[in-house]
Design a binder for these strands. Structure first.
Lengths: 319, 319
DNA sequence: CTAGCGGCTGCTCATCTGAGCAATCAACCA
DNA sequence: TGGTTGATTGCTCAGATGAGCAGCCGCTAG
């Protein structure tokens, strides 16, 4: 019986989608009414016998996006399908660029962090994506090693492409001694930038992992041993240079104090904070970010979205 | 420009298929007219951005079937999709059974050959697939080795399930000496069956390969060396026990003479001859069969269908 | 400069399709 | 047995959709 129906569904679907006949014709052909054909087709679609895929690197997964918004109280979400043979990071970065371009109201001041993901996003922003936006760097990034300037580059590229102004934070990400950090913050140049950063109308950032692959290790701010220790203490990754555990708490208070840049509280208070993240390594930190209100918008890939939705988030209402 | 359009196609397709909004709504959302949305969707479907698949072991590939019919002048074709994790032979056999069941006009006398494929097909025929059909075995098959009776079994199973009568051909497939073959054919029992076979209103058969995997080797009628020799002489496989080359000519005239059963000329003259074939090994023999008019209907798998369509058949009209 | 041409756009209209509803059917239990 | 309930079926009707057509735009060749 169910089998009988299934066969009919298949026949009808073939005739409708492959052969594009009308439901009337199919009804005549199979000896059933056109309404039954319609119902069979609906069933076929629902049961997955008929699969409709949108195959395109820039396609999105709207249902996942809705679930993410609902589950984590986000304002918006963008989920990019996992395309075989495509560079996931690149596609997510482009999606982030698209999102930023389409963002309304256009931010007057945009706070940005830096890293591989943001660098790629900046590259992929179209020239003239906006007009006259002020781009502020929200965390320190004068690199300690040879490939200097990527942090400042990101902000400047984004600003340039909008014929706007870039405000660079001329400070290392992490200082070795607390007093130095205090002194730097007291400096007018740095202090002013931080004040401006706190007033931005939107933020754009990614996150780093708490392993030796961290860009902070790469840049020489932390040793692999430092990061291993952070991991042992529960850190799942860093957001604008500050490491957090799955519940969103900073892991090493002392280290956090020595870190220059916008705090997480300011980020949480922001009306628009766009979190761009891709790749399996970042699933834990991504979960920490979305489930603790650090972002209002997430741009990510399908696998990460699934991972976020699988593990229940901290219960809020009825268990 | 084309890129712009492509993005619109993707957006529209997402909203239409994933989000099932109406074309009106999408038009309003994207700031274009609903007619443009309709056109974008058509484009998206044609360009393959939107892919509609029917995922079911019993689904068919109508476009391939049409091409097969057109290319080889067949009356009908059934192509089964390559389903991962499914037994291809089983699915094709079932499709053959389905086809036979649905065949109109119902054959009064059905000529059948035997082999692994036909055995499976017989198994999968539903009880009562028809009423009172006479099933006649069209080629010899008294097996020389232990697992006797499969040839006769096939015919009897098919007949039984239609509450009909089976007429068995009580003869080996191939005889060692020509005189013996003549003598057997002269025998009333055998001769009568062959005469009946020639008058059948439909035929159902598969084909064998020209390698040591041949069921004729398995059954002890031929040695692996015999078959290797046939292969060297151009044979690509056998149809009802007779080996042919790609052009449909019998390869070993003497062997052919010693083979008991319906000839290929009778098969070619038949109004309905259903050829059931699956698997890569049989691509060459399948091509020989369809391109030389041995069958009017083919039931096969997707890969075989593609293989048949890829290599140009002997040119008929403009090159 | 301008007529001719191909491609795109928005429109009309006929057709197709899905939502919703009443009738029917079948099973189930009192 | 007969009432109840849930599923299925065929239908009405409004809304959605595609085919086909006329106008428009930008290009090119005379």
């Amino acid at each position: 019986m169910a089998d009988e129906n299934e066969l009919l569904m298949v026949r009808a679907a073939e005739l409708y989608y492959d052969d594009n006949k009308t439901q009337d014709e199919i009804g005549a052909l199979l000896g059933i009414t056109r309404w039954k054909v319609g119902r069979l087709l609906t069933q076929a679609r629902q049961s997955g016998i008929v699969r409709i895929d949108i195959v395109h690197p820039r396609a999105r997964r709207l249902s996942l996006e809705r679930e993410l918004c609902a589950q984590f109280g986000l304002i918006d979400a963008v989920v990019i399908p996992a395309a075989e043979g495509e560079d996931l990071n690149a596609n997510v970065a482009r999606a982030g660029a698209d999102y930023l371009t389409a963002l309304r109201p256009v931010p007057r001041t945009l706070g940005v962090s830096w890293g591989r993901t943001l660098g790629e996003l900046a590259e992929r922003l179209p020239r003239g994506w906006s007009q006259g936006v002020t781009v502020v760097q929200i965390n320190g990034g004068v690199s300690l090693n040879r490939k200097a300037g990527t942090a400042a580059d990101t902000a400047m590229t984004i600003a340039n492409k909008a014929a706007g102004q870039a405000v660079i934070l001329p400070s290392p990400a992490i200082l070795e001694r607390l007093e130095t950090k205090r002194a730097i913050e007291a400096d007018r140049t740095v202090g002013g930038v931080l004040k401006l950063a706190a007033t931005a109308s939107a933020y754009l950032y990614s996150a780093g992992v708490a392993t030796e692959d961290s860009v902070l290790v790469d840049s020489g701010y932390l040793t692999p041993e430092d990061v291993a220790e952070l991991g042992r203490n529960g850190a799942v990754g860093d957001v604008v240079g500050r490491f957090i555990d799955p519940d969103g708490n900073t892991v090493d208070a002392e280290l956090n104090e020595r870190t220059v840049g916008l705090g997480h509280d300011e980020l949480r208070a922001a009306q628009t904070s766009i979190f761009v993240v891709a790749g399996e390594a970042k699933h834990p930190i991504a979960r920490a970010v979305v489930s603790t209100g650090l972002c209002t918008v997430i741009v990510t890939d399908e696998a990460t979205a699934h991972s976020l939705l699988e593990a229940r988030p901290p219960v809020e209402g009825t268990p």
